[in-house]
Structures are given as structure tokens and as C-alpha cells.
Design a protein around this nucleic acid. Structure first.
Length: 339
DNA sequence: AAATCGTGGTC
DNA sequence: TGACCAAGATT
């Protein structure tokens, strides 16, 4: 019988070995690993670069180091720690999930994939990451790194139909039963440092031998051509005695549940404000992923805070308390710079 | 199932 | 410098 046992190590073994030599071991969520910390980091890392997440993760963990410590946190508490990070639904989902874990799991972090994937904000990839990193059980992931690495390795067209299904099947095939922790971290590190979206350093790649795209100058990026719709927003930001009048945004749209100035809804003369002692208008162009905001903010200064006649949820928030509230980045910037 | 959901890194 | 895109999930 012809035994064609390959002299080469398998894909996962190569990744494992490479990780032990070149893995990024200094990332904060790779220290003191717990299911809770893995969960928080994985949520923050969704569609967000490592470099961006690091300070947010550290700040979050400093305030809420454990599942127990976050048990009684409010949604606003969690949103406050998300200010400036974006995709604020993630923070709301962290709130929902910790409530579910508290009420339905006796505040013990779920250990099964089937339980994890039912939790808000945890999809297949995040559940797989928690299983493999926190519990060291063999589950595939499919984040941007894995997508890129295996699509090049197997030459899967990222613009093709059903490519997501193919990618998941491929990720399953390549995912090992053993050393799952190192493999999962390793393939992400490989995608982040060697096989990046803008450069393919095939010379340093541990799986270049069987890679169908090795040393090819290919572009595996999917075509994304999205028109950004434009939206005008008119805010009136009342300020007095170092406090700012903010309203909780309750529409099911962007920045939901964050605190913003009064939205005049495009009406020039607004109803709930008296004539201010001083006013100033600033204009900001702010990009979201799917739209372009043209924000006009009229900052109106008053000698003393006044009672606001409205049914809208609102508060006068002092500057030293502002960081306990969830605000969109551009609004936070305006407030920090005013005064 | 295409749209929605943020912000900053990177070149 | 504008454009791509990043440890995706949800509806």
C-alpha cells in the first residue's frame, strides 16, 4: 500500500507552531483569561481593530473586572464605557446578555456553544471564539482574518454566491481537534500581521507551501460600493454652569440610547428654549458606515439651568459627570471643547 | 437578504 | 486624501 503521508505538517499544525513563535501574546485579553474577559473582548473586537480596542478594553475591565462586578450595572453604565467605540448596539447587547446570565444561568458564564449563540450579540463566530479560547473546545471561527487567510489559501472568491457558506465549511475543515486555543489565536494573528488585506508576506507565511494564492498578487477583497446617504441634523446644545442639557435618543436608528443635544428636527425656531445669553453655531461633518451626517450644533449659553417643559427623557449633566453617560463621539468632542 | 450599525487606522 | 476596512450580528 502506498502511503503518501505528507512530509509537511498540516495547516493547523503549521499555524500552531507559528503561533508559538510569533503570536501576539501581549494583548490585554490574552492575559488572565476568563470566559467573561474573552466575551467582552470578542464583542469589542467585532469589526473593530485591535489597536482601537485596547484602551477601551482596559477601561472596561478596570471598572468591571468580572461577571460578578457587572451584574448590577445599568445599560447607561455600559454605554458610557462604549463612548467613542461605535456600534453601540454591542454595549446594549452586553447589558442584555449579562442580565440573562444573571437571571437564567445563576450568573455562571454559559459553557455550551448552543447556549452562547442564543445570547444577544453572540453569533456563530463569536460563540466559536469563546468556546475555543475560553474553554479550549474545538469550534471554528470566521472573522475577517480567517476569511482572508482561508479564502486565499483555498482560492475562494469573496464575491461569489454562497461564499460565506463555503468559508464556514472550509474553516470547519481546517480547524483542528487539538491545540484549538493556539490555532484560533494563531490564524487571527497570521491574518493580522502576515496575510493582511493590503500585503501578503508569503515569504514569512507558515502555510505558503499549499496556499493556492502564494506569491500571487491577488486581490481577494470583496467589492464594496455603497452610496452613503446624507442626512442633516440640527442640534441645540444648552449649556449653563458647566452643565449640558442632553436628551436620550430613543429612535430605533443610529446612536440609539445615547445622549445627544436637543434635536430641533430641522425647525429653525425651536420651542423649548428661551433667548440665551450667548450663542454660537458650529458645523460638523461626521461619517457613519452607511451615511454622512451634516450636523449643525447651536450652542446656547444660559446663566442658570432652567426647567425644561418636555416629555422627552432629558438631564442637565455636569461636565465632571459626562463620562458616566454614553455619547456619540462628535457630541462628546464638542462638549469637551466647550466651556 | 441586503441594510443597518461607528469610528479610527492606514496608505 | 479619500477610500477601504476592521476578532460581525441582527433584522
Amino acid at each position: 500500500m502506498k502511503t503518501l503521508k505528507s512530509q509537511n505538517k498540516s495547516f493547523s499544525q503549521e499555524i500552531y507552531t507559528w503561533y508559538s513563535l510569533f503570536g501576539r501574546n501581549n494583548l490585554p485579553w490574552r492575559k488572565n483569561i476568563s470566559p467573561y474577559r474573552v466575551w467582552i473582548s470578542e464583542i469589542m473586537l467585532q469589526q473593530t481593530q485591535v489597536k482601537t480596542v485596547i484602551p477601551f478594553f482596559n477601561k472596561f475591565i478596570k471598572k468591571y473586572p468580572t461577571l460578578k462586578s457587572i451584574a448590577s450595572a445599568s445599560e447607561d453604565d455600559i454605554l458610557a464605557l462604549w463612548t467613542g467605540l461605535g456600534f453601540y448596539r454591542r454595549a446594549k447587547n452586553i447589558y442584555k446578555t449579562k442580565e440573562i446570565i444573571k437571571n437564567d444561568f445563576k450568573n455562571r458564564f454559559p459553557k455550551n456553544f448552543d447556549e452562547l449563540i442564543l445570547l444577544p450579540g453572540i453569533g456563530r463566530s463569536t460563540a466559536g471564539a469563546i468556546m475555543s479560547i475560553a474553554y479550549q473546545e474545538s469550534y471554528p471561527i470566521l472573522d475577517a482574518n480567517v476569511k482572508r487567510v482561508i479564502s486565499r489559501y483555498k482560492k475562494i472568491d469573496l464575491n461569489g454566491k454562497d461564499c460565506t457558506k463555503q468559508l464556514w465549511l472550509t474553516s470547519e475543515e481546517l480547524t483542528p481537534e487539538v491545540n484549538i486555543f493556539e490555532y484560533t489565536q494563531g490564524i487571527m494573528d497570521l491574518g493580522a500581521t502576515v496575510c493582511t488585506s493590503k500585503s501578503q508576506d508569503c515569504m514569512r507565511c507558515p502555510v505558503n507551501k499549499n496556499c493556492k494564492s502564494a506569491y500571487e498578487d491577488i486581490n481577494t477583497r470583496p467589492k464594496v460600493k455603497k452610496e452613503r446617504s446624507k442626512k442633516k441634523i440640527y442640534f441645540t446644545l444648552a449649556h449653563s454652569n458647566d452643565s449640558f442639557l442632553l436628551f436620550k435618543k430613543n429612535e430605533k436608528s443610529f446612536w440609539e440610547s445615547l445622549w445627544v443635544p436637543y434635536d430641533t428636527n430641522g425647525l429653525k425656531g425651536n420651542d423649548i428654549f428661551k433667548e440665551p445669553a450667548n450663542k454660537k453655531i458650529t458645523n460638523i461633518n461626521h461619517l457613519l458606515s452607511h451615511m454622512e451626517l451634516d450636523i449643525t450644533v447651536e450652542i446656547v449659553d444660559y446663566k442658570t439651568p432652567f426647567k425644561v417643559k418636555t416629555n422627552l427623557e432629558h438631564e442637565w449633566i455636569s461636565k465632571d459627570q459626562i463620562h458616566n453617560y454614553g455619547l456619540p463621539k462628535p457630541i462628546m468632542t464638542i462638549i469637551e471643547n466647550h466651556g
